[in-house]
Each structure stands twice: as C-alpha cells, then as structure tokens.
C-alpha cells in the first residue's frame, strides 16, 4: 500500500481514537460507574463487554489504537536506519505485532460478548 494511503488511514484512526479514548477514560472514572474501583470490578467489566454499544466502542478503540501505535512505531524505526531489508523487517514485525494485538483483543471482546 502507498505511504500516502497509510497516512490517510492514520488520520482517520486518530479521529476515531480521540473520541473513543475520551469515552473509555470517562467510563473508567465517572460515566456509568460510581468511581474507579467500581469500574474495575468483574461485574462491571463483563457488563460492558455484553452491552453492544460498549463492545463496539471497545472494538473501534482497539483497532484505532493498535493501528496508530504500530504505524507510529514503524515510522520511528524506519527513520533510524534505511534500506529495503530493514524496511521489510520493520513492516513485518509491526504487522506481526498488530496481528497478535488485534487477534487477542477481538477474541476477548467476542468471547466476553457471547458470554463468559
């Protein structure tokens, strides 16, 4: 994929991340909970995974944060050295990390949504 397309996708992910992360942090502190301790209880956590809107929010947050983070890491690593081999290695490693993060994160959301 062209670098300009990757950057365009990154801008979209940043916008999604700004909204979903703000909501996620609010949901840990005061939105729908009495406090931070309440947000960390098992019942609250499971209820959030089982609620479709909240599960969708977590999915968007997971995809946006993983893409933005790994794209940023890739850019930093590509600036450190140059060469086709290095570029392929960095892209491969970031894609691999992305597969692990998205795979495990989506598995958690799907399993918890379906019922633990």
């Amino acid at each position: 994929m062209r670098e300009s397309t990757l950057q365009l996708v990154n801008y979209v992910m940043i916008l999604a991340l700004l909204v979903t992360l703000a909501l996620h942090l609010a949901m840990q502190a005061f939105l729908g909970v009495s406090g931070y301790e309440d947000a960390l209880t098992y019942d609250t956590a499971v209820a959030r995974y089982r609620e479709p809107l909240s599960a969708s929010l977590l999915t968007i947050l997971l995809v946006a944060a993983s893409y933005h983070g790994l794209y940023g890491l890739r850019n930093i690593l590509l600036e450190m050295r140059s060469g086709v081999g290095w570029s392929r290695l960095v892209t491969g490693v970031t894609l691999g990390l992305g597969a692990v993060m998205l795979g495990w994160g989506i598995r958690t959301i799907v399993v918890a949504f379906a019922g633990v």
Binding site: Y42, A45, Y49, M101, G105, R107, T108, V111, V116
Partner: peptide, 13 residues
C-alpha cells in the same frame, strides 16, 4: 501499555 492492557483485560474470559 496498550500491548500489556490487551492481555490484562483478556483475563475477563
């Protein structure tokens, strides 16, 4: 942190 957080919250399953 995100990498760590994904695996920590995975314990809910």
């Amino acid at each position: 942190y995100l990498f760590f957080h994904i695996f920590v919250t995975g314990s809910v399953t």
